[in-house]
Amino acid sequence: MLTEYVSAVLLVAGAIFYLAGTIGLLRFPDVYTRLHALTKADNLGLGLIVIGLSLQASSFAAAGKLFLIWLLVLLAGASVSHLVARAALHKGVHLWKR
């Protein structure tokens, strides 16, 4: 029973970070800052969701699968954001400065 509550709290917290990432994506001024919002908020958001779901997982392998997904998303997120930022630099996209 307690694990279900903990799991629910983690899932909601994860969703809040996803929301933060999306709001950052919409509000931040240029491509580089938007990538910050996506990578950092989604990394933590997905991490919380994975822990939350692992608490309800039926087996160790199921929890392991969720953890593998998190690792792959981290790898993909970091690599893809690097490539998008590099492509933007090469195209001469000016970075927004205050």
């Binding site: 809040i16 933060a20 950092k40 908020a41």
Partner: peptide, 20 residues
Amino acid sequence: GGFDVAKRAFHPAIPIAPDL
């Protein structure tokens, strides 16, 4: 990192000072 970027995204003034 997650808290930092979430705070900046939700903040009305978007407190960022980016640089390369």
